[in-house]
Design a protein around this nucleic acid. Structure first.
Length: 654
RNA sequence: GCCACCGUAGCUCAGUGGUAGAGCGGCUGAUUUGUAAUCAGCGGGUCGGGGGUUCAAAUCCCUCCGGUGGCUCCA
């Protein structure tokens, strides 16, 4: 009997199993059952719990080996990297205090309090990084130490660290684990890689301030961000992607391609659309406008300001007074607000006359410009601004129509992002337990959340649920798109709202002759045109598809002798509705081509003596090079094919 | 708003105490050119604003404004 308990049985997910002595470690199991993974293993999942490879296993177990390739493995790897960075920091800045150092989606950070009088800046990072490499070279094991709560507290009283003590306060009475590598010891629940030798390719990325516990009333700590890889080539690839992202920065491309202008002379976060950017924006608007008209939307226009009382009725004003431009006060009782959202205006349209169930769903759409006083530190190019235009619409429908309307909105949103070749992830954003954050009746909330989830299930969508991500008046469906570099952006949103119909006392007369309350769907596929275009610039790296390109073609005569032909061609293409310019300067063709390529113009149309004589045009396409000659008719057919949303996939050619 | 860093010509940047520089762009002229930058000449900046230290400030200090990376926030 005793002997039985000395052995444990270990099963793998691919159906193999073996016996081990009780108290065996992940190391032994990996070496026996997964010899090919042994050098790369960072941890082991034991009956659903993640263990260090050095931790004894005491019972029968189903196991899974984790490497850097697994999401959980990456977290272990980066968490360990944070500890390695901490060890390096402690070596370079004796007396530095550590707060928290977790892994994040891409890498890790550690929040630290530098010793009195010391400021760590970006210039110090290479030194820290070099120290990390040096420590990794030593290849020492990470050890897991179990201690009592009292011992842990004693340790941090001696090595005075208020942050760790505060963390321990929340763990009062529980057994505590420490991890040690080399001379560095840290309070940590784990898990960690077996040894520092795996962490040879770190890169410290940036440094920033961060409040302790994320609370702006607390002390600001120094946060150092980094990343680390098992192989040099993975680090190289990561750094290459970062450089590519920098190269595509929409603020840089926006200036170079003359799309928009941000100037303090107008105000922070208040973009001006230049002619090229205006083409982009209007083209996108017209695209969506057409799709909406096909789907039964009606377009409206509302003023940029509204009576403050309107926003009190909606409940937005007291909730969000901080993030609005202050009201304009005309007289004691007459105050106006720059509109922070379009909703209340649209509700007035609904409420402007009695409504019958026969009118529902009523779908009101507006490219509505709104103003929000975002904190100065929050502003970022077109991504986050103080004045922006939503592709907004409100759908007023009977409760029994709600699910079909949500489905139609999801279909539209998915259609839109397919056009841009952006994959979409869906998040159902529901409320959490913090009742103070939300308005309206709990029963209505639960109903809305249930219906949203039912629709998502009926459509067979893959989704995640984000608790606490809801708007104050209702749950949402958020669309998170991935761009050409794989970065994720939250764009479109669909929100179900039972609260505003109550607040505005919206009604319709049903078939039974009685008044009923409609439900409102708020939705915006792009979210905001500014933000979407900012993302689109980076997605395409400024190489816009033909249908979106601000200038679609430039005509390049080789000598003055082709000027007349060049002007005729330009005009013919313009008459056909294309955005075409002629470059008549007395420059060499090479220069004209170089400049047009820098402007990322999709088509360069070269006219020399040969072309004029044969009534053709030599075509060069951005990203594809010389395409040979075409007649104007052939060119027009080609243009017509390309001038359709979604006709081209995103390409990343320079 | 908070922390760190930054702000010199339209753009990219050099100039760390001795009264402002380059390349590109711009303008003018020459050149008439065949698939990524022809040559020459000419303009252009109260060095982000204000205050201070100094015989002397782009340079050192203070302050305000703006930007970048984060934090908080994001209807």
């Amino acid at each position: 009997m005793v002997r039985e308990r000395e052995r444990i049985r270990v099963r793998t997910s691919d159906g193999r199993s073996a016996e081990f002595p009780r108290g065996t470690t992940g190391h032994s199991i990996v070496e026996v059952l997964f010899p090919e993974k042994a050098p790369h293993a960072v941890g082991i999942e034991v009956n659903g719990t993640i263990y260090d490879l050095c931790r004894p296993i005491l019972e029968d177990a189903s196991v899974r080996v984790l490497t850097f390739e697994d999401p959980e493995g990456k977290q272990i790897f980066w968490h360990s990297s944070a500890h390695l960075m901490a060890e390096a920091l402690e070596a370079l800045y004796p007396g530095i205090k550590f707060a928290i150092g977790p892994p994040i989606e891409q890498g890790f950070y550690y929040d630290v309090e530098p010793p009195e009088g010391v400021v760590i800046t970006a210039e110090d990072l290479p030194r820290v990084e070099a120290k990390m490499r040096e420590l990794a070279e030593r290849d020492v094991p990470f050890e897991r130490l179990e201690v009592s709560w009292e011992e842990a507290v004693r340790y941090y009283r001696e090595h005075w660290n208020p942050y760790k003590l505060e963390i321990l306060e929340e763990l009062r009475g529980q057994p505590i684990t420490f991890y040690r590598q080399g001379n560095f010891v840290d309070l940590c629940k784990g898990t960690h890689v077996p040894s520092t030798g795996m962490l040879r390719y770190p890169k410290l990325l940036n440094i920033a301030g961060a409040y302790w516990r994320g609370d702006s009333r607390n002390r600001m700590l120094t946060r150092i961000y980094g990343i680390c890889f098992p192989e040099q080539k993975q680090l190289d690839e990561y750094l290459r992607l970062r450089e590519e992202a920098e190269r595509r920065d929409h603020r840089k491309l926006g200036r170079e391609l003359e799309l928009f202008l941000l100037t303090p002379a107008v105000g922070p976060g208040l973009p001006i659309w230049l002619p090229n950017g205006t083409v982009l924006r209007r083209t996108l608007e017209n695209f969506l406008r057409r799709e909406q008209l096909k789907r039964g939307y009606q377009e409206v226009i509302t003023p940029h300001i509204g009576n403050l009382e309107l926003y009190k009725t909606s409940g937005h004003y007291p909730y969000y007074a901080d993030s609005q431009f202050p009201p304009m006060v005309l007289e004691e009782q007459e105050r106006y607000l720059l509109k922070p959202m379009n909703c209340p205006h649209h509700h007035q349209i609904y409420a402007s006359k009695p409504r019958s169930y026969r009118e529902l769903p009523l779908r009101l759409a507006e490219f509505g410009t709104v103003y929000r006083y975002e904190q100065s530190g929050e502003l970022n190019g077109l991504i986050r601004v103080r004045g922006f235009t939503q592709d907004d619409a409100h759908i007023y429908c009977a409760p029994e129509q709600l699910k079909d309307e949500i489905k139609a909105v999801i279909e539209l949103t998915q259609y839109v992002f397919r056009i841009f070749g952006m994959p979409v992830d869906i998040r159902l954003s529901f409320r959490d337990d913090n009742a103070a954050k939300y308005g309206g009746d709990l029963a209505l909330w639960e109903r809305a959340q249930r219906e949203i989830q039912e629709v998502a299930d009926e459509l067979g969508l893959r989704y995640t649920i984000g608790l606490g991500e809801a708007a104050f008046y209702g749950p949402k469906i958020d669309f998170i798109v991935r761009d050409a570099l794989g970065r994720r952006w939250q764009l479109g949103t669909v929100q179900v709202d039972y609260v505003m119909p109550e607040r505005f006392r919206l009604e319709y007369i049903g078939p039974d002759g009685q008044a009923h309350r409609p439900v409102i769907i708020h939705r915006a596929p792009f979210g905001s045109l500014e933000r979407f275009i900012g993302i689109l610039i980076e997605h395409y790296a400024g190489n816009f598809p033909f249908w979106l390109a601000p200038v679609q073609a430039v005509v390049l005569p080789i000598t003055d002798a082709q000027h007349v032909a060049a002007l005729q061609l330009t005009e013919a293409l313009q008459q056909a509705g294309y955005r075409v310019q002629a470059d008549l300067r007395s420059e060499r063709l090479q220069r004209k081509i170089a400049e047009a390529e820098h402007r990322k113009i999709p088509f360069l149309l070269v006219l020399g003596r040969r072309e004029v004589e044969t009534s053709t045009v030599a075509v060069r396409r951005h990203g594809f090079g010389d395409q040979g000659s075409r007649t104007v008719e052939e060119l027009l057919r080609w243009f017509a094919e390309l001038n359709v949303p979604g006709a081209e996939r995103a390409h990343s050619n320079a």
